[in-house]
């Protein structure tokens, strides 16, 4: 596999545009699959496109004495961070840019997402939105460490934090075989950070839509797009880190990666929509008391395997 990044291969501007396009398409796919599963009608797949177009032209409504600056920053930051996290996800075997700390970059974008979502909740100066913002903080705190450990476990086995290195190490054995816990925790935490499905409490219907309750027009479009793009990016990352990336027989590599990504999306939506929203009082304790020790144990197992030369 070449060590080139996408930016070096295609030039910076085409590469960035390409990644943005990939992100938007992935987001649309996630939103379409989600709509189909929720409504039970296949023709609902076009609904995300229709509602995006409507939101684009809808007039914004506002609230009494909002903190407009912080509100706008939060709304713009959510999709931006989702796209930035995609910068280190291998697309066609290459990442937009490659550093010796790709995994930490991915994680940092999620951490910044906390701040952004809290701002979206804070900005409108409204009860339900702020409640949602604080729910997201609590959820983020509880699921940040498990996610971090799950990511690091993959890096540990590959001996590198570079996404393409992890990609290349799995040619013989998918990491999910030796680190199933890390895989499941990664996907669940991704749902928690996109506050989607069973982790949707920050935008839950019990608080009238939470952080999203006062959003309208372009603001709502940006935040909703950011959520689904982030879910899509996480599915692609999960396929790259744990499901062998582009390794597979017969078909070309990038197609395999795409198929695995779609499989992760389908599995996530199918499982996630089979249950109600889980109240944060309950999920947060599980994050701290179960997932943190479990992911640490998983990292320990992988570390022992690394010392025994299992992945060499």
């Amino acid at each position: 596999m070449s060590e080139q990044t996408l930016a070096e291969a295609w030039g910076l501007v085409p590469a960035v545009l390409g990644i943005v396009a990939v992100g938007l398409v992935l987001g649309l796919v996630v939103a379409a699959v989600d709509r189909v599963v929720v409504s039970g009608a296949p023709r609902a797949a076009v609904e995300p496109i229709r509602s995006s177009a409507r939101l684009l032209f809808e007039q914004r409504r506002t609230t009494l004495a909002p903190d407009r600056l912080l509100w706008r920053i939060g709304c713009v930051a959510v999709p931006t961070l989702a796209l930035l996290s995609l910068a280190v996800v291998p697309v066609g075997g290459r990442t937009l840019w490659s550093t010796s700390a790709d995994l930490v970059w991915f994680n940092a974008m999620e951490a910044l997402l906390w701040a952004a979502v809290w701002l979206v909740g804070w900005g409108p100066n409204a009860v339900h939105a702020l409640t949602g913002g604080y729910r997201f903080l609590a959820q983020g705190l509880a699921y940040e460490l498990p996610l971090m450990f799950a990511l690091i476990t993959a890096g540990l086995a590959a001996g590198s934090l570079r996404a393409t290195d992890i990609f290349a190490t799995q040619e013989n054995l998918w990491f999910v075989v030796t680190m199933p816990v890390a895989f499941v925790v990664f996907v669940a935490s991704a749902a928690a950070f996109a506050f989607w499905g069973p982790f949707a409490a920050p935008a839950g219907p019990d608080i009238a839509g939470g952080v999203a309750s006062e959003l309208s027009g372009v603001d709502r479009l940006l935040v909703e797009a950011g959520r689904v793009v982030f879910l899509g990016a996480s599915a692609a990352m999960a396929a790259a880190l744990f499901l062998g990336g582009d390794s597979g027989p017969w078909l070309p590599g990038p197609l395999w990666h795409l198929l695995k990504t779609l499989a992760v999306v389908a599995a996530l939506v199918w499982v996630g929509r089979r249950m109600p929203v889980l109240r944060p009082d309950r999920t947060v304790e599980v994050g701290w008391m179960v997932l943190v020790p479990l992911t640490l144990l998983q990292a320990l197992v992988v570390a022992v395997l690394v010392l025994n030369g299992f992945y060499a």
């Binding site: 550093t99 010796s100 700390a101 930490v104 970059w105 994680n107 940092a108 951490a111 910044l112 906390w114 701040a115 940040e144 934090l161």
Partner: peptide
Amino acid sequence: LVYLAVVTALMMTI
């Protein structure tokens, strides 16, 4: 110093 940069962003945001 990519790692230091990213970790600074990560830790300070948290």
